[in-house]
């Protein structure tokens, strides 16, 4: 698979220094944490995103773990970089297309960015469900 340099760099950075690139997990039961996990082992990718949100609805921290190809891992990191410091409303506006364009994903890998967008939506929904 011919990837852009951006994908390769994001993948290598995450692999070589996971702690510095938001790899990990937050307590899924905490009130201020939302978890979104999408994908399936049979499809070859599973992405788990967790966001920590403060009282002003700002995303203060996020962690991820991803099982999948190089571009799924790179898309996860791209998503994390876009999420940090955003409000929930802003985060809801992140589109898979933006992630795909930023990483120059090949057409056959567009589903990786779709996975990222879905995990954001699900993490926010999980957080919001705890509030009500």
């Amino acid at each position: 698979m011919a990837y852009s340099r951006k994908v390769i760099k994001k993948f290598q950075d995450t692999l070589n220094n996971p702690a510095a690139h938001n790899v990990g997990r937050l307590d899924p039961n905490a009130k201020n944490v939302g978890t979104g996990m999408v994908g399936a082992p049979a499809c070859g990718d599973v992405m788990r995103l967790q966001i920590e949100v403060d009282d002003d609805n700002i995303i203060t921290d996020c962690k991820f773990k991803t099982y999948g190809c190089g571009s799924a891992i790179a898309s996860s990191l791209q998503m994390i970089e876009m999420l940090k410091g955003k409000t929930l409303e802003e985060a809801k506006g992140i589109k898979d297309r933006e992630i795909a364009d930023l990483l120059e994903l090949p057409p056959i890998k567009i589903h990786c960015s779709v996975l990222a967008e879905d995990s954001i939506k699900r993490a926010i929904a999980d957080y919001e469900s705890k509030k009500t």
Binding site: T14, L15, P18, M37, P41, V46, K65, T66, Y67, I73
Partner: peptide
């Protein structure tokens, strides 16, 4: 080495 690194990233391994 890389299997350990990728498992560190894998929610399935967790």
């Amino acid at each position: 080495k890389v299997v350990a690194q990728l498992r560190e990233l894998s929610p399935l391994w967790d």
